[in-house]
Amino acid sequence: MIVARGLSKRFGRIQALEGVDLDIAAGEIVCLLGPSGSGKSTLLRCINHLERPDAGAVWIDGDLIGFTREGDRLLERDDRSIARQRRRCGMVFQRFNLWPHLTALQNITEGPIRVLATPRETAEREARALLARVGLAGREGASPAQLSGGQQQRVAIARALAMNPDVLLFDEPTSALDPELVAEVLHVMRDLAATGMTMVVVTHELGFAREVAHRAVFMDAGRIVEAGAASDMLTHPTHPRTQAFIQAVMG
């Protein structure tokens, strides 16, 4: 479903991605692991073209993301066309990025109403259902500042789901949370996984990865170092970098 080929991205002197190939099937749950600065976020952000790769490309269901092909060249698409492609990917950020001037409900309905032109009543009905699904029924009117980190992240997940995406991209969804709030977010993600949603998850929660992910991909210095069945790789990593990383995270 998602195919990435030869993705490279440079920031000044830093090579954030270097020739990354990745294939993700529909319904698959893939965890991206790796030390800080290894390019996990950049890879995730290339999938919905929040980051424009310097080389290589991403296809979702056969559609080239962010570019059109003209002969042997890739031309970046216009704003509108890129925005349309991004609807397929929901994204959940480390720092939630809820919109503070809108209520929890409005954060969820904003996309459907503005982007999909869903009638307000329909959008609100669906948003209420989504809030209930992430365990926040009754908090429709709360502003983000009134919610705990865990609650904010659950609203952010509901916001992503409201667009009916084909894929959900998670960038360290629990890294900014106090330890006691991590479980409630992982719980919502487990529920999602059980529905067969395609998910790409950058995380340091190895327990979650082992239990929920079908596949784990280990990155280092902008490259994929090792990939395989999550349960195998996390219990018997073969590459020394992976071994070191898992050792370090397990403490």
Binding site: D79, A83, M91, R114, L116
Partner: peptide
Amino acid sequence: IDRGQAEAALAVGMTRFAALRRIVLPQALR
């Protein structure tokens, strides 16, 4: 205004202009 605000708007499929008008400007004007 934090860059993440506009990115979250782009991620739900808003154009850059819509993200500016609906998400970033209202916060900046306040």
